[in-house]
């Protein structure tokens, strides 16, 4: 298969970027999107040109490292997959494919298609954990959890933190990401202990990082490679409101136990 690629090239964070057109030939229909880009980069290296920089790691859809805004959609045209699991058979021979980095104030471009998504890590650092002493592995059935809650928590925990929700959102909001993190922990007994403080500190952190707000277009849910539901955003709102209203006058949270 042959493709025309229009790719965003930008030397560094400060440089002015632009779309550059490339042609890539002899791509196998069953190769992944990244194998196609590898083919392009080999062509560029052979020509003595700079290869295109893009993020990738596991290439099996579980690590959340890959990104790419392909033809107007994060992770491309196929529902429920990451870019590394997208295959060229999903395109027609001779197609022109637009490839852009994810755009958000909170995700500055590092180079070409690579953006800095550490803002999501900072939200997690603000409260997306449980403070427990590590030690021996507890019995799996020592704490009873309702099946419905464990299923919902597991669905939320499927978030790989790729940031497709932010990239798809008209407002570059991180609400599906933070909703998944807050729900996942608030649904389980281990996470409930710190649930009230967690949601307040995580939302405060998110607000300070330059993400937009949610206007309920649900583009995030449509593009999430792990199919995380916007019901998690409603749960985040619920958790936030009840925690903010019940918050004590003096700041009770000292950062741990």
């Amino acid at each position: 298969m042959n493709f025309t690629l229009r790719i965003w090239r930008q030397k560094n964070a400060a440089a002015k970027g632009g779309m550059v057109t490339y042609s890539v030939r002899g791509v196998c229909a069953d190769s992944s999107f990244f194998e196609m880009l590898d083919t392009l980069n080999q062509q560029l290296v052979d020509e003595g040109a700079e290869p295109v920089c893009f993020d990738h790691d596991c290439r099996e859809g579980i690590c959340g490292t890959c990104s790419l805004y392909i033809n107007g959609r994060p992770h491309g045209p196929v529902k429920g997959v990451t870019t590394c699991q997208l295959h060229m058979r999903s395109f027609a021979d001779g197609d022109t494919i637009n490839i852009e980095p994810w755009r958000a104030k909170a995700f500055p471009i590092v180079r070409d298609l690579i953006v800095d998504r550490s803002a999501l890590d900072r939200i997690n650092q603000a409260g997306g954990y449980v403070s427990v002493n590590s030690g021996g592995v507890p019995d799996a059935n020592a704490i009873a959890v309702r099946k419905a809650d464990s299923d919902a928590a597991f669905d939320a925990a499927a978030c790989i933190g790729c940031g497709a929700c932010v990239a798809a959102c008209a407002n570059a909001a991180a609400m599906l990401f933070i909703g998944a993190k807050v729900s996942h922990l608030a649904l389980l007994p281990q996470g409930k202990v710190e649930a009230r403080e967690r949601v307040l500190t995580m939302v405060e952190c998110m607000d300070g990082l330059g993400f937009g707000g949610c206007s309920n277009t649900y583009a995030c849910e449509a593009e999430c490679p792990k199919g995380i539901s916007v019901a998690n955003i409603a749960m985040l709102n619920r958790e936030f409101l009840s925690s903010a209203i019940r918050k004590d006058k003096a700041k009770p949270f000292s950062g741990g136990f």
Partner: peptide, 26 residues
């Protein structure tokens, strides 16, 4: 909120978003 939302993406995409959303929500 609209002002904050616009500011959250200072550089727009070259190709407008084609994610599945209800038409009027945007």
């Amino acid at each position: 909120v609209s002002g904050q939302n616009r500011a959250a993406r200072p550089v727009r995409y070259q190709e407008s978003n084609s994610s599945e959303t209800s038409l009027f929500s945007k």
